[in-house]
Structures are given as structure tokens and as C-alpha cells.
């Protein structure tokens, strides 16, 4: 794909919520730097994976939101993905009733709470087709980040039918599954109730290898993610051509300000995808990349761009 052939319609970058359990101060500092330095349109904040983590960052949340908003970023509040207890439901209700911020529903229950006002739908809600999209739009969905396992033609079909803005996950470990069970605790022979927050030991996820030492998955508490980082730098132009307006970068243990700059550069046509990919690899030493889903393949596959 030649940079000069990119469509001229505007496109946007979202920083997804930090899915990992980072230390509260480190998380605050991360967002401060994002606010001050990163070229991003929207920034999601909020705990998605495990409600047990929520209280630790809550005290920092107001100042983080304020700093991001002051820096001109649209702030999006992301909900929990798996809601089981009354406490978690209350938390979601608080989120839904708040005024002034766009809320991202990561569970159907949250979309139901938000019905009647504009809201965003996160990638952990199953939007696989135009029928579901249309229904969520009728409730007020104005932005939908699609699930990871969709291929480009499917994304194109959905985008074509969409009134809402369609967002695609473009960088980072893909969230693949969510569970009631905590695998970070289980790996250390702990129960979830007495987990000692061991998921914090793996700020980029705990690598899961096969018995043949082949890297395969990563565990983030109750969430299972891809081992590989998604990288769609080479596919941005194609996806824009299909009507995708917005791309999501998942925060990883990498210089996210620099990562955002690469994606912005390719979207703006000021950076060739190949050169950007090489820089991205340098920013994430040792990381293995994948883009299989977008090409209709197994998610871990890396398909070379054909231009």
C-alpha cells in the first residue's frame, strides 16, 4: 500500500483501557504522560478485567480524567467485562449514570443501562454482524469497537452498514477470553479470593508456552490474551478503504507515545507502513507480531502485506 493512495477522510486513534494490573502510581504517571505527550484522539480509562483491582486506582481517577481532558483528549470510561455480583452491577450503574463522559459498555448489561443516551460498545461485546449493530445503534451506540476475530471482509460489511463509528483493534495483545476463574492466582496455587493480587507481577501479561516451549498465550488474571502483539500498521490503509474510521491501541509495556506516533504517521500518510513496522519492532524488542484474524486466518498468524 502506497502512503499517497490513502483515503483522505479523517481517522482517529483510541488508546484502549489498560487491561493489566499496573501499580496505581505507575498507572497514573502513564496516563499523565499520555495526556501530555501522546498524539491520540481518545483515551479509555477504567478497570475491565477484575473488579478486585478497582479500589486501588479509584483515588487517582479524577485527576487522570481531568489531565486527559485538559490536554484535549476525549475521555472514555470503560466498564467491566464480566459482571456477576451485585457490587459489580452497582459499579456499572454508577458508571452509566455519570454525566459528561462517554461510557464504553463491555457487557450487554451495561449497554442496557446506557440505552437512551449516546454510548460506545467495547470489543468484549459480541457485535458480529449488521443485525446486532443496528439494534445497539437503536439503543444509542455511536461507536463500536469490533471483536478481535473478525476478518477484513466482515469488518467491511459491518462498516458499510454502520451509522456508528467502527473501531478496530490495531496494536497490542488481543483480549481472547474472560473467565470467573483467575489463572494468575491458579498458576501460583492461590484461590481467587486470596489472590494476593499476583497478576500485578506481570504488567504485560504472564506468558503461557506449550509443553514444547512455544510461546502461545498470555494470562492477565481472569483474562486470557494472545502472546503475540497485534500489529495492523500494514493494514491501516486497506481498513480505511473499507470504512473503518478508528483504530485502537492497547497499552503494553512499550513506549506508547512512540507507538501512537507510528500509527498516526501511517494514517496521515507521512510514514510508510514498512518503515513504521520496523520502528515498532525496535520499540518492542523480542515481541512477536500477528495479524492473522484480519486476513481471515488463525489469530496468531503473521501475513505479509501484499501490495
Amino acid at each position: 500500500m502506497n502512503a499517497s493512495t490513502l483515503p483522505v477522510s479523517p481517522s482517529f486513534l483510541t488508546l484502549g483501557p489498560v487491561l493489566f494490573n499496573w501499580r496505581p502510581e505507575a498507572l497514573r504517571d502513564f496516563y499523565f504522560r499520555i495526556a501530555d505527550e501522546a498524539d491520540l484522539d481518545s483515551v479509555c480509562v477504567g478497570e475491565v478485567v477484575c473488579s478486585k483491582r478497582t479500589p486501588f486506582f479509584a483515588p487517582y481517577l479524577p485527576e487522570v480524567i481531568e489531565r486527559l481532558a485538559a490536554a484535549g483528549k476525549e475521555v472514555v470510561l470503560s466498564s467491566l467485562a464480566l459482571i456477576m455480583s451485585e457490587r459489580e452491577l452497582d459499579q456499572a450503574r454508577d458508571l452509566a449514570q455519570g454525566e459528561g463522559w462517554l461510557v464504553e459498555a463491555n457487557d450487554v448489561s451495561v449497554a442496557a443501562m446506557l440505552a437512551g443516551k449516546p454510548f460506545a460498545v467495547g470489543p468484549l461485546v459480541n457485535v458480529y454482524n449488521e443485525g446486532t449493530l443496528a439494534y445497539l445503534q437503536s439503543l444509542g451506540a455511536i461507536r463500536v469497537c469490533l471483536p478481535a476475530e473478525l476478518s477484513a471482509p466482515v469488518i467491511g460489511t459491518i462498516a458499510k452498514a454502520a451509522a456508528a463509528e467502527i473501531e478496530v483493534q490495531a496494536f497490542g495483545r488481543l483480549p481472547l477470553a474472560i473467565s470467573a476463574r483467575c489463572y494468575a492466582a491458579r498458576a501460583r496455587n492461590l484461590a481467587k479470593d486470596g489472590c494476593q493480587y499476583v497478576c500485578a507481577d506481570d504488567p504485560d501479561g504472564m506468558p503461557v508456552d506449550t509443553l514444547d516451549d512455544e510461546p502461545f498465550l498470555a494470562v492477565n488474571g481472569t483474562q486470557t490474551m494472545s502472546y503475540h502483539y497485534m500489529d495492523l500498521l500494514a493494514e491501516l490503509g486497506m481498513l480505511r478503504g473499507l470504512g473503518v474510521r478508528r483504530f485502537r491501541l492497547w497499552p503494553q509495556q512499550a513506549d506508547m507515545v512512540a507507538v501512537a506516533r507510528l500509527f498516526r504517521g501511517v494514517l496521515a500518510g507521512t510514514l510508510e507502513p514498512e518503515a513504521a513496522a520496523a520502528e515498532l519492532a525496535a520499540l518492542c524488542p523480542g515481541v512477536e507480531f500477528a495479524n492473522g484474524y484480519i486476513h481471515g486466518r488463525e489469530g496468531h498468524a503473521l501475513v505479509e502485506a501484499d501490495d
Binding site: A148, L174, L176, A177, I178, F216, T224, R297, G299, H300
Partner: peptide
Amino acid sequence: CVMAEGRCALSSYATGQSPNV
């Protein structure tokens, strides 16, 4: 299923085919 059903893409990550699709 140990994952929340319908919210798991492990199979397609390894094989390209998933329960949902």
C-alpha cells in the same frame, strides 16, 4: 467451558475457527 461462553476466541487464535463464528 472454563471461560465465559461466547466470549472466548482461543480456538480461532490457534486454528482460525471459533465457536462464535
